[in-house]
Write a protein that binds this DNA or RNA. Structure first.
Length: 259
DNA sequence: CCGGATGTTCACCT
DNA sequence: GAGGTGAACATCCG
């Protein structure tokens, strides 16, 4: 799932619960509660609280309450439902079935309505007062000086650096492939080998891709997405795409124009 | 049946 | 400390 665009869609959906008061919290899956807290901690800290804001940092969704802040992570297969309505119609690689056993976290509100995380693979989690400072600047808000800093002093592959949430928060595997492809940059290049000219291109491309794919409907709507398969060729120059691994993730790129 | 898929965290190496 | 790897989570799809 979800990368920054999907979490942003969830954030917008979660605005519906701002102003509502929590009547009941169900956290049936102890494993799903992170940060050293227990399901009981969540119940105690959130019951009778009124949510005041729906925020996002990278892939972390945050609901402020005036007291504790609730942090929601969705892993690859987590979906958010508010009042039974989904934030994303169809999650790539997700399940299209609905199974109550996959409802890892449920909040009921006074006066009706609910917020539910459905997560078949249990890769997400909920946390009280997550350490937001562990995340780098948000990818949607980062600017040239911030991006320079992300890439400086590191021989790590460009792609691994862009996926490192502590350096820049929000980009996932699909978005990074799309961004490198549009920027004509080889994802395997050492991060600190980029010239100023290339960093500028990358900086612009990050925002262009996020704005454009957000309007289109998500991380899987990029121009490159449908080609990153076995036998895929570059839609720009028809060159067969290469496949490798970077940062532990499958990477596709065009060996001709991505340098 | 097997392998891989939009993610995060942590242990364990070098 | 930096950086890489593999495991764990559990389901769907080809």
């Amino acid at each position: 799932m979800p990368e920054i665009l999907e979490i942003e869609a969830y954030r917008r959906l979660a605005e519906k619960v701002v102003g509502r008061v929590v009547s009941e919290v169900q956290a049936p899956d102890h494993w799903y509660v992170k940060g050293g807290a227990t399901p009981e901690d969540l119940v105690e800290n959130l019951t009778n609280r009124r949510f005041t804001k729906s925020r996002r940092k990278g892939k972390l969704l945050l609901l402020d309450s005036g007291g504790p802040t609730l942090g929601l992570r969705f892993g690859m297969t987590g979906r958010l439902f508010v009042d039974g309505k989904a934030g994303i119609d169809q999650l790539e690689w997700g399940s299209r079935r609905i199974n109550p056993a996959w409802h890892r976290f449920i909040i009921e509100f006074k006066g009706g309505g609910s917020l539910v995380i459905d997560d078949p693979r249990r890769l997400g989690g909920v946390e009280l007062n997550p350490q937001e400072e562990r995340l780098g600047p948000d990818a949607w808000e980062i600017r040239l000086p911030g991006l320079r800093k992300v890439l400086s002093n590191s021989t790590t592959a460009l792609k691994a650096r862009l996926l490192d949430q502590s350096r820049i928060a929000g980009l996932g595997n699909l978005l990074v492939d799309e961004i490198c492809w549009r920027s004509s940059l080889d994802p395997n290049r050492p991060a600190n080998s980029l010239e100023e000219k290339e960093i500028k291109i990358l900086n612009r491309t990050i925002r262009t891709v996020l704005d454009q794919l957000d309007k289109r409907g998500g991380s899987h709507t990029g121009d490159f997405f449908e080609h990153r398969n076995k036998g895929g060729v570059c839609p720009l120059d028809a060159q067969p795409l290469r496949r490798s691994e970077a940062g532990g993730r499958t990477t596709w790129w065009c060996p001709l124009h991505q340098r």
